[in-house]
Design a protein around this nucleic acid. Structure first.
Lengths: 194, 194
DNA sequence: AACAAAACTGAGCGTACGCTCAGTTTTGAT
DNA sequence: ATCAAAACTGAGCGTACGCTCAGTTTTGTT
């Protein structure tokens, strides 16, 4: 089970950073020490290897978020929303390659022909947006978040904002770290009761 | 000059939607009616063709924004910020393929080895963020936008938010149209004086 | 030790791609 | 009408890729 894992690990890095087509099985073979035949023995095609990576990514992200929220006390819904934003950025740094992968278009191209791709992508996005929404609903119940905003739609917008920030960091357009405090402030201003 | 333009046009659509590697010169040839040799006669390599597309995209976007702001009267900086957001979304619909292209990672890969790519990408982003910043500065001067926010950083965040929305629309994750009003509202809440 | 299942190998196949080049056709100025 | 420059052509070259398969090695159970 050693080489199988190594292949998945190296492929995650290469697919995320170089792209799917720009990563050859020959290169995976060289970097993992496994023969090309071994790669196709464990994953029956290159596309299937990508799918296996996506499945693991979903498992990892969902597990991390569930663990983060389990038994964690929040002073208010607003604080929960801020911490969700904060944790998302933290996780995007921790699991850089896997988050990078989610921003790569070839995943969405495969989604059009292979429902397994779409299923896993949706599971990830639903998990994330649900936590944002839950924070907003909690905040509206405890009075820390304005009741005039639409919970689901605003959750999507919050997610869009923080996810966009991750993209810009990954594409080296500008540094997300330098914007971190301002981002949390913007998030607070968006939600606060006035 | 007919075929040269046709090649650029078709390549824009294919590179944006299918990807760079996933678009073959043979296919471009078939769809434009130009022989493969003709493509290499006008653009000396596939990479060069992509660069030509990026240059045109920069020209188009910058021209559209400059034209939009020229002689346009705004009641306030806040309104200007909202209209900038709004216009960005409008333009992303109008020039769908070209905006899609800007979200494709191969552009940023080429940027690492070819400074021409980076130069053009930066020109586009600077132009866009500058307009957001200008709106904020105007609003802080006329009292419609809170003076407690950092103009440049908040401009980047606003841009991130609206650009992220465009990405989600392009990747068919969810409909930006349905979130349009809520997005403008969030934008207003972020900036407003309290 | 015997043996079957699982893991692994790498040469080789078919295919598709980017690009060149020697040559042809079209264009536009005189 | 002449002619040179510009536009265009497509067969063909070298290369790289995904994947197969017949065979070998390793692993774990009895």
């Amino acid at each position: 089970m050693k080489k199988k894992d190594a292949i998945l690990k190296v492929a995650t890095v290469l697919f995320s950073n170089r792209g799917f087509k720009d990563t050859s099985v020959q290169e995976l073979s060289r970097l993992t020490g496994a023969a090309e035949g071994t790669i196709f023995y464990h994953y029956k095609s290159k596309e299937n290897l990508l799918l296996a990576i996506l499945v693991k990514t979903r498992d990892d992200i969902v597990a991390q978020f569930d663990q983060f929220f389990e038994n964690r006390p929040f002073d208010s819904g607003l604080e929960m929303a801020e911490e969700t934003t904060s944790f998302y950025l933290y996780l995007a740094g921790l699991m850089e390659d896997q988050f990078l992968l989610l921003h790569r278009r070839f995943l969405y191209r495969f989604s059009e022909s292979n429902p397994e791709f779409r299923k896993n992508l949706e599971a990830i996005y639903n998990c994330l947006v649900d936590y944002f929404e839950k924070a907003i609903l909690t905040g509206q119940a405890d009075g820390s978040i304005d009741s005039g905003i639409h919970p689901r739609k605003t959750a999507l917008i919050l997610f869009t904002m923080v996810d966009g920030m991750v993209r810009f960091k990954n594409d080296n357009l500008y540094d997300a770290g330098a914007l971190f405090n301002e981002l949390l402030k913007s998030c607070r201003r968006m939600l606060q009761v006035r």
